[in-house]
Design a protein around this nucleic acid. Sequence first.
DNA 1: TCAATTAACATACGAAGCGTATGTTTTTAT
DNA 2: ATAAAAACATACGCTTCGTATGTTAATTGA
Lengths: 201, 201
Amino acid sequence: MAQKSRAEMMEETRAKLIAAARKAFADKGYADASMDDLTAAAGLTRGALYHNFGDKRGLLAAVVDQIDGEMAARAQEQANRKGGSDWEKLLAEGRAYIELALEPEVQRIVLLDGPAFLGNPAQWPSQNTCLSATITTLERINKAGGIKPIDIEATARLLTGAALNAALWVAASEDPETVLSKAIEAFECLASGVLREQPDS
Amino acid sequence: MAQKSRAEMMEETRAKLIAAARKAFADKGYADASMDDLTAAAGLTRGALYHNFGDKRGLLAAVVDQIDGEMAARAQEQANRKGGSDWEKLLAEGRAYIELALEPEVQRIVLLDGPAFLGNPAQWPSQNTCLSATITTLERINKAGGIKPIDIEATARLLTGAALNAALWVAASEDPETVLSKAIEAFECLASGVLREQPDS
DNA sequence: TCAATTAACATACGAAGCGTATGTTTTTAT
DNA sequence: ATAAAAACATACGCTTCGTATGTTAATTGA
């Protein structure tokens, strides 16, 4: 089909705006990103913005949603690649979260600006994408009787929180390579706290 | 002395501005807080602001510093109150962090707005106030040979990160009472991962 | 098929806020 | 006592956001 339908055009402009926003938000931060510049870079005007996303925050929410989806997919991929036990999958997820959060785009938009302008991340619908994966893995381990009798969701929240914070620490360090390995070690150490018995490693 | 020196006057206006900023930032958030309104509420104008703090961000930094100092002091107080072993002190600190982070003022200003407008908290000088306390406690436990051979700072970073994230979760929940106890349980569980042997509890 | 309506934007407008540049007054220094 | 500087207040310009109002093209209904 050479002709694009109206709905397709709409989706295309939405995609262009989101793409331009990802770049602008990542480069300048949400607060310093001008909507005039952003929309112009996408070959549009602010009119398209307010028609499609309501306001500036709406665009940020859409961007966060998109990034979060990509994060969850990539983390799952990493976790499933190596196979292994559910426990090893949990550790792989944690490592993946840390490494994903090292990307400037994720860090600036999702970890720094997101909470300030979209509010408490614990209330985001998207945050649950990454989180539910961890919950699922924890529940599997739990059904096998491998962990202590604690609240699954609470544990998942703390683990992901620790991972994201670790990423911020690594990003701020002057020697990310070695600091990253330290962070991953510490993460696996803390995670082992949920086990009934010490792992083999 | 009935007369106040010039330096005292200066400190007084700084204190008034910081106090007004704490209230305004906590109520409306940093982005939506008007400097005109804020300074007027302190009985001053924006002139005083830019003379004392450089810009809006400078005022936020001062506010964050003050709150962080109070947090560290209160957490230490809580940890030392019950006495007990270093291990119990570590758990008490974690619990204190979670409970402190539940206060709307701390949450809005330090956890949500701070990172967005002051940048990565891992680079803040003030963040180290709370963190170094945890590091100190961990080192004490380490010297007694009680923990696994992992990086102390990394562990402290992850533990505080987990605590702060837990607080955001509790704050967003509809039943903070029970969720808080779950979060504290999970925290202690994860923290026990650093121990060589399972604690007595 | 052809008006009429609506969707998808663009343009124009008004208001608010930040930072700076420029006063103004009161100490401090010499 | 006069000059200098500190501690603010006032005034100004610039940017930006959200909305209100066009404008064009597609869709609907008879």
